[in-house]
Design a binder for these strands. Structure first.
Lengths: 258, 258
DNA sequence: GCAAAAGTGTTGGCAATACACCCATGC
DNA sequence: GCATGGGTGTATTGCCAACACTTTTGC
């Protein structure tokens, strides 16, 4: 083995030299498709459970960059919008779900044996991405990586259900302070589509007519000279976000509740 | 030295055996006194700079418990209300302010030499306490521990100004969702006192009369059969929080902005 | 009596809601 | 034509901000 090959293998190893001990990241990646809020999940090889996209922090790397790197690997997309939202530190959070057999099966691959025996404090991120841009890609520990409908998600690995719940809660709270619509929808969209997104996030129906007036009152949308074609019923107008006004408005938060 | 003494010394040592590597906590402890929002700061021995109350996480300890332990040591108070709010992970955040001389002076005391050379990712907590209950107490690395008026705080150690700013921002955002008034004021207080607190947090004046009606409309206060005595002008009524109704109301968030 | 602060009342405007009505498209 | 969903208008309600007025205390 020459030096270059060894470097390459070391790069792939998850161990103390490359990553900070005790710290992990878990990313709740949201997408929006067919009026459903989706979350990207991975099926773990060692116990067949589904889990959030996760990873570790390199020795000299801000955590936001680590999250960005992890999400790039799972989706193929650079610079995904993300926000840290909570730290999960219960000492039992990992031990509950890792026994010796599972660790052995993990260490078959490129991973240092003792790495996963540590206690991990996990920093939770939520991330938003335009659904259609994503190419779901498993990591070395997982055999599948796919989108799940929010409502169809069952029991996840470790405390990932709790992390998901907290992410959703945070998303709701920040709906008027973060560019959530912008990051989940394609460039062009209709107001009813935006409304479905809001309804999916909030988990409740909104009045169609009041939603239109309220959104338009914010003055953050630009009406395009196009309509959604090939659709049943009246063709709805297409809009884009007016980015400057949008970010301006988010500074103080969009006023009013939903 | 017998075994017990050695155990005791080891307990005091800050090193890898006792604490998780790479992870630190910084606590922004708020108090309220004489119509001013106060923050508890420590003056560090090694560089004479002022800093937030900080510490590390024991091997088997939830971070909330670690923060609670740290605050108990600085104030003498158990179970202080606290909330984690952000993780600060810039790789340069510590290196900028620690040189070899400083590290040498630190290692004179009970601290392992190499501990402070690590990169630390710091979890920020804000905490709220009734001012008069606190007995400020320095830690082994500091020579003073006192309250500071929010406006009079100058340049702090490392990135602690940034941490403080983010804490204040979070406090403002959560004013309608966390029991902030309850944890900063004594059991009995007047509505004008509560208003001064709100004004200090928000950094702006509020209308006296509208504040009264709005607070009372929440139905979270109980009027007592007492008044503030020995004070100039008309004696204001004393109130207490109706804890049950208060927490009930905070579930959905108190409606409306300030 | 006077100044200053606490408590209560009144009003106008604006924003959120709950509707009614018209338009466009697929079948 | 009719069902369905998109777009616009309107009326009522309720909240919020801006005021006036009264009460109480120290000096």
């Amino acid at each position: 083995m020459n030096g270059q090959d060894k470097d390459k293998r070391d790069q792939k190893m998850v161990n103390k030299e490359n990553y900070l001990a005790h710290i992990s990241l878990d990313c709740v990646l949201f997408g929006f498709h067919e009026n459903q809020l989706k979350v990207l999940l991975l099926k773990m090889k060692h116990n067949q459970q589904w889990a959030l996209a996760g990873g570790f922090v390199k020795q000299q790397e801000p955590i936001e960059e680590a999250a960005s790197r992890i999400l790039k690997e799972r989706t193929g997309i650079n610079n995904i919008f993300l926000q840290q939202f909570y730290v999960f530190s219960n000492p039992d959070r990992s031990e509950l779900h890792l026994n010796t057999d599972q660790l052995t099966s993990i260490s078959d691959s490129n991973f240092a044996e003792d790495w996963f025996r540590q206690r991990f404090i996990s920093i939770g991120f939520y991330a938003l991405v335009e659904f259609s841009q994503v190419t779901p890609t498993p990591d070395p520990l997982s055999e599948a990586c796919t989108w799940w409908d929010l409502e169809e998600i069952g029991s996840l690995m470790m405390d990932h259900n709790q992390i998901l719940l907290k992410a959703l809660e945070t998303l709701r709270m920040q709906l008027n302070h973060q560019p959530i619509g912008y990051n989940l929808l394609p460039d062009k969209f209709t107001i009813p589509e935006l409304q479905r997104l809001y309804e999916a996030i909030l988990g409740k129906k909104l009045d169609r007519r009041n939603f239109q007036r309220k959104i338009m009152a914010y003055n953050i949308l630009r009406k395009l000279d196009e309509r959604r074609s090939g659709v049943a019923h009246k063709a709805p107008d297409l809009y884009s976000f007016d980015l400057e006004k949008y970010h301006q408005a988010l500074q103080d938060g969009l006023r009013g509740g939903w």
